[in-house]
Design a binder for these strands. Structure first.
Lengths: 141, 141
DNA sequence: ACCTTTTTGCAAATCAGCTGCATATACGCT
DNA sequence: AGCGTATATGCAGCTGATTTGCAAAAAGGT
């Protein structure tokens, strides 16, 4: 799937995982694809509410599509789940996130990599599933 | 501070960060030091309730001591904070940590560094204050 | 002991997320 | 194009986790 799939491609993707392509789901994916960073349940629900979609529906869809493998849900340490589409262009690789502890904004860091300078680092480390950086973003400094 | 500080050492530590050494705080630290893994607010509150300490107090103390640098608060992914004592200066935020989302253990990764392969990464990123990797440790895999 | 500041207890509020159920829809089938 | 059924949605209330306001109580310096 390309960076910004159109409505038909989105519907296809939804059906491909065994879910029905409802307006709420399409709108959710459109929104997430348009976003540059992961969005919270509240972000999505608030936006969809303008189209008369209930927050429970928004939430169920986020979870259902996550379970179905269309979205990734991440917990950045502030007790709020954020969702972002899994673009298979990125090979489904999860990328590091940067969370501003002041304003709560999140950025995706596709081009940051981890270097272990010695094996000792991996003593306890098994499988790394998420990389999270926290700090102050440029706007908040 | 040693692995298992006694009551007086605990009181000292609390005062050292500018807080008053109240029974609730001492009991909280004693409990956390005795625990082998991070405890939830519920764990602590439940235990302290036996001594007539309110859960709001337990929670405030957990947060206050976290802010003061005596404890570390981590989020394993179930939207429940877990707390553990910071046993020595080595365990500060100056180096990356690895958090096992299964057992809650935190390990220090002194020898892992992050490399931004391009400046684009730092678009929004201002100052990074904490690097956290999450995953499954070798014992939990 | 006294005084000031920090803490505590209690109750009630908030916040994120979930659930039950009756109704409405998507979409495969004819 | 219309049907029928499994799915999805809306609504409303609920849960569990965490926080807050405020008056009373305790900590610790003098």
């Amino acid at each position: 799937m390309k960076k910004t799939p159109d409505t038909d491609e989105i519907k296809e993707a939804i059906r491909a995982v065994g879910l029905r392509a409802t307006p709420a789901r399409v709108a959710t994916l459109v929104m997430l694809y348009a976003a540059k960073s992961p969005l919270t349940h509240a972000n999505v629900a608030e936006h969809l509410a303008e189209s008369g979609i209930d927050k429970a529906t928004a939430f169920r869809n986020l979870n259902d599509m996550t379970d179905a493998g269309l979205l990734r849900r991440s917990e950045l340490g502030d007790h709020v789940w954020r969702f972002e589409p899994i673009r298979d262009e990125h090979h489904d690789a999860s990328h590091p996130h940067f969370l501003c502890v002041d304003c709560g904004s999140v950025s995706c860091l596709d081009d940051v990599t981890l270097t272990a300078s010695s094996k000792r680092a991996s003593e306890k480390v098994g499988e790394i599933t998420e990389i999270l950086l926290r700090g102050h973003c440029n706007e908040c400094r």
